[in-house]
Simulated assay, not measured.
Amino acid sequence: MEKEVLIQMANQVTAFWSVYPKGEALESIARHIHSSWEPRMRDEMKTIIDDGGQGLAPLFVEAMKDYFKGPKTPTKSNPSGASEPKPKTGSPAA
């Protein structure tokens, strides 16, 4: 895909999410790129950003720099607040 087309697409995604609070916008931009763009498109965008990101919206560049760092370390907390089920011990009843 041509560089100019990727930049235009990236800026359109950014324009959509730019009205949201910054943290939500950054996360949503990265999530959209991850789920909607092919790996080769993401690879090309990384090259564009590594070369200076000329023509890209600053919010997009910020979102992608964080995205390209890789996944955050997952936590083992249970979002519902409930405790994890404990494994059963002993032999089953006959």
Rank of each mutant, 00 (worst) to 15 (best):
P87R: 10
H32K: 05
P85W: 07
W17P: 02
M1E: 13
N78T: 09
H34R: 12
K22C: 03
L26E: 12
V19A: 13
P87N: 06
G70F: 05
W37R: 02
G23N: 11
V5K: 12
K65R: 15
V13K: 10
T47K: 07
Q12Y: 07
T75I: 09
M1S: 14
K72R: 13
W17C: 05
G81Q: 04
I49L: 08
M41W: 09
K69Q: 15
M45K: 03
E44K: 06
P85Y: 08
A25H: 08
V61P: 02
I49M: 01
P58M: 00
G55H: 02
I29S: 01
V19H: 11
I7C: 13
S35I: 05
S83Q: 14
Y20A: 14
F16D: 03
I29C: 01
L59P: 10
P58S: 02
E84P: 11
E38S: 14
A15R: 11
A82R: 09
K22A: 09
P71A: 02
E2G: 13
M9W: 13
E38T: 11
P92M: 00
W37L: 07
P85T: 08
L56H: 02
G90E: 00
P39I: 08
L6H: 06
L59M: 11
Y67G: 06
D66M: 08
P71Q: 00
S28N: 14
S35D: 13
L26S: 04
S91V: 04
S77P: 00
G70H: 03
A94Y: 04
N11C: 12
Q54L: 06
T89R: 12
I7T: 09
P87W: 03
R31I: 07
E4T: 13
K3P: 05
K86H: 03
P79D: 01
M64F: 02
K69Y: 05
A15K: 10
K76D: 14
E84H: 11
P39L: 02
A10Y: 02
G55T: 01
N11V: 12
E84Q: 13
V5W: 02
D51K: 12
P74F: 05
M1V: 15
F68R: 08
K86A: 10
T14W: 01
M9S: 15
S36V: 05
T75M: 09
E27R: 14
P87E: 04
K76W: 10
G23K: 09
V61T: 12
P21K: 06
D50L: 06
F60T: 02
M41I: 06
P92Q: 00
G55V: 01
H32D: 13
